[in-house]
């Protein structure tokens, strides 16, 4: 296998992340985050543009990231089970002088119900900070900014 550029590595990392969620492998989702430095928020475009701080979902430690999927893994939440499919495009990666990585991408999530009907679930973008340690990429910070902030029924599964 040829050596991948950082751009290609981050894109592959994003695709693996999406695949993990789309396959419902929630227990593996926290592994994409840096255990020592971890901030995951889903915010509406409305609040983000107004400078209002409340997120839709906010996990400020690695423990909270694990807790976000714990009830999905235990099947302890009542929510509509849909098939999700992430489409991640416009991946942009910048190396920072401090050795960190700034990255972002556009996000489209389609949903399909149990009858096989598809609809758009989410439109938005990722704004990330990543670390590269021992040759592994991890998210230190992931901000998911949702343009389609009037949520269809519920947002149970992270984006």
């Amino acid at each position: 296998m040829t050596t991948m550029t950082l751009q290609e590595r981050v894109a592959r990392f994003y695709f693996d992340y999406a695949d993990t969620l789309n396959r419902g492998k929630y227990a593996e989702w926290p592994d994409f985050f840096n255990p020592d430095e971890c901030d995951y928020r889903i915010v509406s475009r409305e609040n983000h543009d107004l400078g209002l701080p409340a997120p839709l979902m906010g996990c400020y430690t690695h423990g909270m990231v694990k807790d976000r999927v714990a009830m999905l893994i235990d099947e302890a939440l009542t929510y509509r089970h849909m098939y999700f499919r992430h489409y991640i495009t416009n991946v942009r990666v910048d190396e920072c002088p401090d050795g960190g990585i700034d990255a972002g991408a556009n996000l489209l999530v389609m949903q399909c119900d149990q009858e096989g009907s598809a609809s758009t679930y989410m439109v938005g973008r990722y704004e990330d900070k990543l670390s590269l340690r021992e040759d592994r990429l991890k998210l230190c910070k992931r901000l998911v900014i949702i343009d389609s902030f009037s949520i269809d029924t519920a947002l149970a599964v992270p984006l």
Binding site: I42, M57, L77, Y79, R80, A156
Partner: peptide
């Protein structure tokens, strides 16, 4: 409050279930 928001709204551990119950 930014932590407790995880109880309420469309992604709240409590409130997200109400949407499904109504549906």
């Amino acid at each position: 409050r930014l932590l407790s928001v995880n109880f309420i709204g469309p992604s709240g551990y409590i409130s997200l279930e109400d949407g499904e119950a109504l549906r």
